[in-house]
């Protein structure tokens, strides 16, 4: 699916020393509840980060802060060198460079699959319709559902919908992709098709931040695994040492709970 040229294009564009996301001493509260505590995170171009942790640990909130679906109250977040501030134009600019895949797909039910994919390129990138459709077709082929282009999201299975959602984000040709538990709402037999799509995307050199409980994916695709609990980053490491030799007790407990069946 990922052609060699594609891979080359993204790899060469993404100088691996370039910092794509830089989070410094970031805090966030929901009302008085302290959800994120002193988060420091640096992601370089082409890096694949898997974030895991028990539910309520703030991992989704963290990646939602990166495209400002959630607003942080302290510290700084820079995306590709641009700091996230209240400036609306700034936020829109960053969002157009950062793709997001949601747990519940969030496709637009009143638009066809093709229209879902062309919407961003046409209205944000201002591409002509023909060109936007060409791009959409290309990415729909990549996620292996070009034949569903004229259907409505409600006519597709969950796995297909999630792959369309991935294609919709890719059509914006983003520099970073965020995945917020992309397989958690899927039936077991559909998880694999979405993970396969994500694995292939990882091979193209896309910068990815993935919140997931799929430890198999983390082992195969991640450069680093981050473990969060109660709003803090407890441990970060490459997958091998992370899984085989966790340092923190809470990490050990978490891993024993999700890997012990």
């Amino acid at each position: 699916m990922a052609t060699i040229e594609d891979t080359e294009r993204i790899r060469s564009a993404a100088d691996t020393s370039r910092v794509m996301v830089e989070v410094r001493a970031m805090h966030k509260w929901f009302g008085t509840f302290h959800v994120l505590k002193n988060i420091d995170l640096r992601v370089t171009a082409g890096e694949r980060i898997v974030i895991c942790g028990p539910s309520g640990s703030g991992k989704s909130t963290l990646i939602r802060c990166i495209n400002r679906l959630e607003v942080h109250q302290q510290g700084t977040i820079e995306v590709d060198g641009i700091e996230l501030t209240r400036d609306v134009k700034n936020i829109e600019q960053i969002r157009s460079e950062v793709g997001m895949v949601f747990q519940h797909f969030n496709l637009f039910p009143h638009l066809t699959v093709l229209e879902n994919c062309t919407l961003g390129p046409m209205w944000v990138r201002k591409l002509p319709k023909g060109e936007a459709e060409e791009i959409a077709q290309r990415y729909l082929e990549r996620v292996q559902i070009p034949e569903q282009a004229d259907k409505y999201p409600g006519q597709l299975s969950g796995g297909q919908q999630q792959r369309v959602a991935i294609a919709r984000s890719l059509c914006m040709q983003p520099k970073i992709m965020l995945f917020d538990e992309p397989t958690s709402a899927l039936d077991p037999e559909m998880i694999k098709e979405v993970l396969d799509t994500m694995l292939e995307l990882a091979e193209t050199g896309m910068t990815m931040l993935v919140v997931t409980h799929e430890m198999g994916f983390a082992r195969r695709a991640a450069d680093r695994v981050i473990f969060m609990d109660e709003g803090e980053i407890i441990e970060k490491n490459a997958p091998e040492p992370f899984f085989n030799n966790p340092q923190n007790d809470r990490t050990k407990l978490f891993l024993s709970q999700i890997l012990s069946h």
């Binding site: 829109e92 157009s96 950062v98 793709g99 997001m100 949601f102 969030n106 637009f108 209205w123 919709r168």
Partner: peptide, 23 residues
Amino acid sequence: LSRGQYEAADSLGLSYWKKTWLI
């Protein structure tokens, strides 16, 4: 509408009026 619809439109970088008009 689910909050997800607003968030999906936001995360594409659509401005308020485009989000409202299209989504």
